[in-house]
Amino acid sequence: MNIAIVIPTLTIGGAERLAIATAEELNRQGNKVTLISLSSKGESRPRDVIGLHLITKKNKVLALVNFIKKNNIQGCVSYLERANMCCSLACWLTSIKYCASVHTAPVAAFKKRKLLNRVVIKLT
């Protein structure tokens, strides 16, 4: 399967490490995996066997839709609110059958998030 994993940045946070580990495991299982970052910020990099694509354009959703179509992506996994919202919209616009969003915040941290972030988490 051709899978895209979408994260907001390549910083060294827990969600980013989890996304890279997921990408490497899916690749080991025989899938073609591309890690997509919605920003060029950060230091984490997947191993060379995992594709890396940076989206630096202002309209992240449109850029993601174009990438999905151009690369025949069959499934998407996203981590954290911004990436989850962009990926959910892009999957809906491209009729992707397999779309998963991962929320890594514990309940206590969820309650401290801004209202908009909590709404986005509930939506996705």
Score class of each variant (00 low, 15 high):
residue 36 I to C: 02
residue 88 S to Q: 07
residue 107 V to Y: 14
residue 28 R to N: 07
residue 92 W to I: 10
residue 101 S to M: 11
residue 104 T to Y: 01
residue 55 I to R: 07
residue 49 V to L: 08
residue 90 A to N: 09
residue 85 M to R: 06
residue 47 R to K: 14
residue 87 C to F: 05
residue 75 G to T: 12
residue 71 N to C: 10
residue 77 V to T: 02
residue 40 S to H: 09
residue 74 Q to A: 10
residue 40 S to D: 08
residue 103 H to V: 15
residue 60 K to C: 10
residue 78 S to N: 12
residue 36 I to F: 00
residue 75 G to M: 13
residue 79 Y to N: 01
residue 63 A to M: 14
residue 29 Q to F: 08
residue 28 R to K: 10
residue 96 I to Q: 00
residue 53 H to D: 04
residue 102 V to N: 02
residue 44 S to P: 00
residue 77 V to F: 01
residue 80 L to A: 01
residue 90 A to C: 09
residue 43 E to A: 08
residue 59 N to T: 02
residue 76 C to M: 08
residue 89 L to W: 07
residue 102 V to P: 03
residue 98 Y to Q: 14
residue 100 A to V: 07
residue 83 A to L: 06
residue 58 K to D: 15
residue 37 S to R: 04
residue 101 S to V: 13
residue 61 V to Q: 11
residue 39 S to E: 08
residue 84 N to H: 07
residue 88 S to G: 14
residue 42 G to H: 08
residue 56 T to A: 15
residue 53 H to C: 05
residue 41 K to P: 02
residue 42 G to M: 12
residue 63 A to L: 09
residue 98 Y to A: 11
residue 52 L to V: 05
residue 102 V to G: 11
residue 75 G to R: 12
residue 74 Q to W: 01
residue 78 S to R: 07
residue 49 V to F: 14
residue 67 F to W: 11
residue 38 L to N: 01
residue 73 I to E: 00
residue 83 A to E: 12
residue 83 A to D: 10
residue 72 N to H: 06
residue 55 I to Y: 03
residue 42 G to F: 00
residue 77 V to L: 13
residue 85 M to A: 04
residue 88 S to H: 09
residue 74 Q to N: 06
residue 64 L to V: 13
residue 46 P to S: 01
residue 36 I to P: 01
residue 69 K to E: 12
residue 93 L to D: 10
residue 105 A to V: 11
residue 37 S to A: 12
residue 71 N to R: 10
residue 72 N to A: 07
residue 63 A to D: 03
residue 96 I to T: 01
residue 100 A to C: 10
residue 83 A to W: 03
residue 60 K to S: 06
residue 57 K to P: 04
residue 107 V to S: 15
residue 55 I to H: 00
residue 49 V to D: 14
residue 39 S to G: 02
residue 102 V to Q: 09
residue 106 P to M: 02
residue 27 N to E: 13
residue 52 L to I: 05
residue 62 L to Q: 05
residue 97 K to E: 06
residue 100 A to G: 10
residue 63 A to S: 10
residue 48 D to Y: 15
residue 99 C to P: 05
residue 107 V to G: 11
residue 60 K to P: 11
residue 65 V to G: 00
residue 84 N to Y: 02
residue 92 W to V: 04
residue 82 R to D: 15
residue 69 K to Q: 11
residue 26 L to H: 14
residue 39 S to K: 05
residue 65 V to A: 03
residue 91 C to I: 00
residue 49 V to Y: 13
residue 68 I to N: 04
residue 49 V to Q: 14
residue 92 W to C: 01
residue 97 K to N: 05
residue 72 N to K: 09
residue 67 F to V: 03
residue 34 T to P: 04
residue 54 L to Q: 03
residue 82 R to P: 13
residue 36 I to S: 03
residue 107 V to N: 07
residue 102 V to F: 13
residue 80 L to N: 04
residue 27 N to R: 13
residue 95 S to T: 09
residue 38 L to M: 02
residue 104 T to C: 11
residue 96 I to N: 02
residue 88 S to F: 07
residue 59 N to Y: 07
residue 53 H to Q: 02
residue 55 I to Q: 10
residue 54 L to W: 06
residue 105 A to E: 00
residue 69 K to C: 06
residue 70 K to Y: 06
residue 31 N to L: 09
residue 81 E to P: 06
residue 30 G to N: 15
residue 92 W to M: 08
residue 40 S to K: 01
residue 94 T to G: 00
residue 67 F to R: 07
residue 90 A to W: 04
residue 50 I to G: 10
residue 85 M to K: 04
residue 100 A to M: 01
